[in-house]
């Protein structure tokens, strides 16, 4: 079977499109690369959606943690503490358990025990907590002068937040937030590994790498392929976030931009 044929059969196998049976014997490199790449679609799906949705919740809890209202502050603090303080796989375990029991009472929760929704929710909450902490640190680091200047120009309330505080917070938090994005994409490999069941052999990149390692008994081929994919993915993330970073800092003179980049890890 030619490699092109393999790609046609298996490139979308993780979504259930194409050949139903996975390769059984005489595993070629092409099959391994194609199927593991196919599984990567799920990692990208989980990572991207969780990150996008998590971004908004993160902003909310970051503001919440600094709020003067005590219940709001305590709630945000506890949310961040619980999700940052426990390993992801324990969160998966309890979420799965919770969704199962909800499902038996309310039909609405039926899809929640599937990875595409259930695991996404856990990853969303998880990244919201981590990013929330980063944003909170950035909020505290916003120079007083910026806010005072905003006041002087007559900004207040929502418009001051949206036009002044929020962009500055993003600028300060961005390097650490990039790290969080990388960690999140890496964490998506845990979904099927210890968390949610895989239906009809539709899994993520690690699921297929595991499949091949188990069939060939040779971990030195599939896992390095997986590693290669993730290095590429990480490079893409760094590039995209770098572009956004440039846009966030486009008003600054060249030298100050460098200065910002230098403090990559100060906040996180």
């Amino acid at each position: 079977m030619s490699c092109w044929q393999t790609i046609q059969d298996y490139a979308l196998r993780s979504l259930g499109i194409g050949e139903r049976l996975l390769p059984r014997e005489d595993f070629t490199l092409c099959e391994q690369v194609t199927l593991i790449g196919s599984g990567l679609l799920w990692n990208i799906y989980f990572g991207t959606l969780a990150l996008l949705a998590g971004f908004f919740l993160a902003t909310a809890v970051a503001v919440g943690k600094g709020a003067r209202n005590r219940p709001v502050r305590k709630l945000s603090e506890w949310f961040i503490f619980v999700f940052r303080g426990s390993p992801l796989f324990i969160q998966f375990f309890f979420a799965y358990f919770l969704f199962l029991s909800l499902k038996s009472h309310v039909a609405f929760f039926d899809p929640f025990t599937s990875a595409w929704l259930g695991a996404l929710i856990v990853l969303f909450l998880n990244t919201a907590a981590y990013s929330g902490e980063i944003f909170h640190g950035a909020l505290r680091a916003i120079p007083k002068g910026d806010v005072e200047a905003a006041d002087a120009y007559g900004f207040s309330g929502w418009s001051r937040f949206r036009r002044i505080v929020w962009p500055t917070m993003l600028r300060l938090a961005w390097p650490a937030y990039t790290n969080e994005a990388i960690f999140l994409f890496h964490a998506t490999t845990l979904v099927f590994f210890s968390g949610f069941p895989a239906w009809r052999q539709k899994g993520d990149a690690l699921y297929y790498a595991n499949y091949f390692a188990d069939k060939t008994f040779n971990p030195f081929v599939p896992y390095p392929i997986l590693a290669g994919y993730f290095i590429l993915l990480t490079l893409v993330i760094i590039t995209l976030f770098g572009l956004i970073n440039r846009r966030l800092n486009r008003h600054l003179p060249q030298e100050a931009r460098r200065g910002l980049r230098l403090r990559v890890n100060v906040i996180r």
């Binding site: 990388i182 994409f185 890496h186 964490a187 490999t189 845990l190 590994f193 690690l206 790498a209 595991n210 390692a213 971990p219 030195f220 896992y223 390095p224 997986l226 590693a227 993730f230 290095i231 993915l233 990480t234 490079l235």
Partner: peptide, 19 residues
């Protein structure tokens, strides 16, 4: 720095110890 940071730790652990 770039290579090891780019790989999920699970993937690394699954083959690296034996290597």
């Amino acid at each position: 720095i770039a290579l090891v940071r780019g790989v999920p730790d699970i993937a690394f652990f699954l083959f690296f110890v034996i290597a």
